[in-house]
Write a protein that binds this DNA or RNA. Structure first.
Lengths: 234, 234
DNA sequence: CCTTAATTGTGTATATTTGACACATTAAAA
DNA sequence: TTTTAATGTGTCAAATATACACAATTAAGG
């Protein structure tokens, strides 16, 4: 193993792939750059890691600056390290994806950064390797959402089954059978009825549900038990 | 977004979590350090990213130096960026895990680096955050192996069904029903019989199989179609 | 040479889960 | 009050998973 290097520098950036859901479509929060380099083009929101800053903390900081959200759902996706990915200087970038409820952010902060919600299907080309980052993040979101009900991060606190179904349909770009979807979700017991009905609906008003935090924890533990001896390792 | 930083440096390292399989147990290739820092302690094999080097290429280089293997199965796991994870200097480390057939390496290269195969259940404590890296890599290996037959990377070119079953049992630390396992694996058609029998067996000699590369590709394509519109994004 | 022990190969019955679809209910608007 | 567009609940067949029985192969020991 080599000793610690004496010269040269490689910058470390963090870029955020921010997913939102408006009830119909999966959207991305993108910024139209009003700064160099690549002024005027679309990109993800990003920044450089500070010398005395945790990687995760940097992602939280960047997301907070853009949206005003303090406790985002945030997961590291992948680190992108091609030599010429940033033409200005050698930079590797750690991608984080976030799921946020689309009406939660601070609109002033968004405007400050020239940020907009763009439907995934309408996504413009992004600078550098940001298109690839979105691809990888979407793939990871899909894998993860297939196993864990993280999709709830994209919905308001209470929601109807049809709303939840539309979210899954948007994530996977498929159409699901309403009745089978309902049966499967309710069988997990992670939802509890609020007893109220969705006032916004124009026809029959659906039941509003919320996530039952305890049952949700049980559900996740059930998954861990598929990997029974993970603890034995430590 | 901030401008490119003018001062300070953050080093970028790559560490490799190398899994192997001896027919019974899942093993890790670890090195007993004969260099500073942390001389005499156990660690993963790692190194620093060079200024003009792809991230993935750095992982390949490090693995080649240790094992003499040219085309390893290698996947990025996660990037570890706690401030004090390396006490000498601020360093973030990109973890890659590798699956290699346990008899493929160059023994001289291993000896040079003071490296040994250690059963996962016997793993000593490692330096820095390397224990955590192993945890995360194992979790990722398990997720991935549940969906894709990457386990073959850990076996010789030809193998019997019982050997393959033992591999899965070692990865998940479970016991599986021999007959159901056999039926499930063979139904994928990704294995083809070599027509030969395992000479090493002491009782009934099992049929030797090899991976059918074409069928394996078809099988992977089938998975991609579960994410039907992924292409629409680009 | 014949039995025993250990392991591999193949089959089958049952339970569980999934997928496709029918029908009743609710609410607003015409 | 009829129509329209949703939501809520049920049923049946097909596919899949699970549990377990039994036959075949090989080496070793009497």
């Amino acid at each position: 193993m080599a000793n610690y290097p004496h010269s040269g520098r490689i910058l470390v950036a963090v870029d955020c792939i921010i997913f939102g859901f408006d009830g119909e479509c999966l959207k991305l929060l993108l910024i139209k750059r009003n700064f160099e380099p690549e002024l005027g083009k679309w990109s993800l929101m990003g920044g450089f890691l500070n010398e005395k800053e945790d990687l995760h903390a940097a992602a939280v900081r960047i997301l907070f600056n853009l949206t005003g959200i303090h406790n985002p759902y945030l997961e590291q996706v992948h680190t992108f390290g091609q030599i010429d990915r940033d033409p200005v200087e050698r930079t590797i970038s750690v991608g984080y994806y976030s799921l946020i409820s689309i009406h939660d952010q601070d609109p002033a902060a968004l405007a400050n950064h020239n940020a907009s919600w763009i439907e995934l299907s309408q996504k413009p080309s992004l600078i550098f390797d940001h298109d690839q980052m979105v691809e990888v993040a979407l793939r990871q979101l899909r894998y993860k959402a297939a196993m864990f009900p993280i999709g709830f991060e994209l919905l308001p606190n209470t929601f109807t089954l049809p709303q939840l179904q539309k979210l899954y349909e948007a994530i996977y770009n498929v159409s699901l059978d309403r009745r089978n979807f309902s049966r499967k979700i309710l069988s997990t017991q992670i939802l509890e009825s609020t007893g109220e009905k969705d006032a916004a609906s124009v026809t029959k008003k659906g039941t509003l549900y919320r996530l039952n935090a305890d049952k949700y924890q049980d559900y996740l533990k059930g998954f861990n038990s598929f990997l029974p001896e993970f603890a034995e390792l430590t």
